[in-house]
Amino acid sequence: MKVGGSYTLPLLRQRAHELLQDPAILARCMPGCEDLKKIGPDEYEMQMKVVVSAVQGLFAGKVRITDQKPPESFRLIVEGSGKVGFMKGDGLLTLVPATVTTGVSILGSEGTEVRYEGDVQVGGTLAGVGQRLLDSTAKMIIRKFFEKLAEAGAETEQAAIVP
């Protein structure tokens, strides 16, 4: 399944890039992330509990970041598996300076558009019976991730500015 889209963060590009590499931030923003451990350079181990309506799945997996071109782009590979199935997402994230049109940013209107484009493979029960809802749920999870990232970004900016 192809996924693609963009989300504008009220953050400068450098900062947005840093946040996207910060395990603590990632752990906080990935919906259902219960544990994220660094196991190597740009490689993390992760436990996730994804809850969507009544559906819940425990996934154990890995997050890898490759093709680093800070602060412009990087490739994100997320793999996870659990009883309900397994998934692998492989996407290129491109960060482009942009103007924030909605929401409040302490930076005024300067922001970063994160464009993502990639492929999600799903297997097991989820793939066999979840087709109808995969697209809308994947979009929802990505949306939630960026919302939380924007939130976290705003907080850290605040912390940096307020002594």
């Binding site: 309506s53 009544a54 559906v55 819940q56 799945g57 009883k83 029960t125 989820l126 019976v129 979840g130």
Partner: peptide, 19 residues
């Protein structure tokens, strides 16, 4: 989990997507 008519919940439970 609240069960009303069960038209969504029961299939999810039978598939063990909800437990």
């Amino acid at each position: 989990k609240v069960l009303a008519g069960g038209m969504s919940l029961i299939p999810l439970m039978k598939l063990r997507l909800a437990a």
